[in-house]
């Protein structure tokens, strides 16, 4: 059971489809691990469907139904029921951004205990990537120019504000400073979504900025 969840506003924007790709991928990955939040999203979708049905209907253009039926006759594909996907290592939204093996990603090693790889920059400039911390590895104190979301995929880590395990959704704004440390007994792999290059507060801080421009 996960302990750290998205805020209500974040779940509302996810259910409405109005959040950016970075946030929606992070929430989608959290939902894979978190039954509570899946139920909340279902609840929001059910409520939105009522609002959807109470909209004032807008008449469609004449001939739309006939055109649609012609399209269906031209391309009569009916999708088979999707079989449950074979158990994959990562949730679907993340898996769709990954190559067959994590080794194929371009990993950078900004410091001894940390490897980072970039997956996608979204329409608002949010950077989606993976962070890998060696067991017991600690990242120097740092803050952020914008928001940072981490969703734990494997292992766990802790910082001044708490400790986090599989599926936990950790949201930090530019007011927060933290120095995350991976659990001692195993490596920690996380989904990371950040708005801007991380700004560092420690003397060696620049070393850990995973996404700094050359």
């Amino acid at each position: 059971m996960t302990q750290w969840h998205p805020q209500t506003e974040q779940l509302v924007e996810y259910a409405a489809g109005s959040c950016n790709t970075g946030m929606s991928v992070a929430i989608s990955v959290h939902l894979h691990y978190c039954k509570h939040c899946r139920e909340r999203v279902s609840e929001l979708e059910s409520a939105t469907a009522v609002l959807f049905e109470t909209q004032a209907p807008a008449p469609v253009a004449d001939g739309t139904f006939d055109q649609l039926m012609q399209r269906i006759q031209r391309e009569p594909t009916v999708e088979p029921v999707r079989k449950p996907a074979p158990q994959q290592r990562f949730p679907r939204a993340l898996q769709s951004l990954l190559p067959e093996s994590l080794d194929e990603l371009n990993w950078r090693h900004p410091m001894k205990n940390l490897s980072v790889s970039h997956l996608l920059t979204d329409e608002t400039g949010m950077i989606i990537g993976l962070h890998h911390m060696k067991a017991g590895g600690r990242v120097p104190n740092h803050t952020h120019r914008g928001d940072e979301i981490n969703v734990v995929l494997e292992g766990g880590f802790s910082d001044q504000m708490g400790s986090y395990g599989e599926g936990d959704f950790v949201f930090r704004t530019d007011n927060d400073t933290h120095a995350p440390q991976a659990d001692a007994h195993e490596d920690c792999l996380m989904l990371s979504v950040v708005t801007a290059p991380v700004k560092l507060t420690g003397p060696l801080g620049w070393l850990v900025n995973p996404f700094i421009k050359p």
């Binding site: 929606s24 989608s28 679907r92 939204a93």
Partner: peptide, 10 residues
């Protein structure tokens, strides 16, 4: 991008 809404919003 190549990611479709159905992959994110199950």
């Amino acid at each position: 991008n190549d990611i479709s809404a159905d992959e994110i919003w199950d």
